[in-house]
């Protein structure tokens, strides 16, 4: 019995010592860099949402616990952030929403005005769409894209995707990117899934004016 234990220890002590050493090393690195990693995620959201709501200087969660809304029979948590201006007034709302795109999930940062009636646009947080086609949803208005600006000022409600039309007209009809209908549809569907339920939930919580 004792000999056997001794044998095991002899065989594996290097492994044990190494495991402890590596574990400690990882714990130290993690402790040192974790705050920075978390800060990065917050910064990225603030940067994107700040472009959509230029008057907002900071964002804070509207509720202490994320709100849950019902999407396709599943309850999805959404952390809605309130965009505040220098005077501390709400200038709009921003949140991360997820939809399924052509190849993979698409994550968007979307923003709406303070009354939750008109959209303030969206930016892509992460997507894996086909280069040259579907990834055109990533082109921001500053870069000359026509797809993203169509959402700025569009009404909160049901949006429809159309193949032809004038992208300059701001209404509930969104003109698709040619060659990337599925990706365009994915963005529209994501908005349709989130906007109305979110407005109802916010209204039920008494957060809307």
């Amino acid at each position: 019995m004792f000999a056997k234990i001794k044998y095991y220890v002899e065989q594996s002590w290097v492994l044990m010592v190494a495991a402890i050493a590596f574990g400690t090393l990882l714990a130290i690195t993690d402790a040192a860099w974790k705050p920075r990693i978390e800060q990065n995620a917050v910064n990225r959201f603030t940067e994107l949402a700040g472009r959509l709501l230029p008057n907002a200087i900071r964002f804070e969660s509207a509720t202490s616990e994320p709100l849950t809304i019902d999407i396709g029979g599943k309850s999805v948590p959404v952390d809605v952030k309130r965009g505040l201006n220098a005077a501390g007034q709400t200038v709009g709302w921003a949140f991360v929403c997820t939809g399924s795109g052509f190849a993979d999930k698409i994550q968007l940062v979307a923003a709406v005005d303070a009354a939750f009636e008109t959209l303030a646009g969206f930016r892509v947080l992460s997507s894996n769409e086909t280069p040259g086609f579907g990834d055109k949803i990533n082109i921001t208005p500053d870069e000359g894209g026509f797809f993203q600006p169509q959402f700025v000022g569009a009404p909160v409600g049901s949006l429809t995707l159309v193949k032809t039309g004038d992208p300059q007209d701001i209404n509930d009809r969104i003109v698709a990117i040619s060659g990337a209908t599925v990706s365009s549809q994915a963005v529209v569907d994501t908005f349709n899934a989130y906007l109305v339920p979110l407005r109802e939930t916010l209204a039920a919580e008494g957060l809307l004016p």
Partner: peptide, 13 residues
Amino acid sequence: VTIADLYLRAFQP
């Protein structure tokens, strides 16, 4: 690899 991953997440998000 975990260290490299943490480094990139912290400094090259």
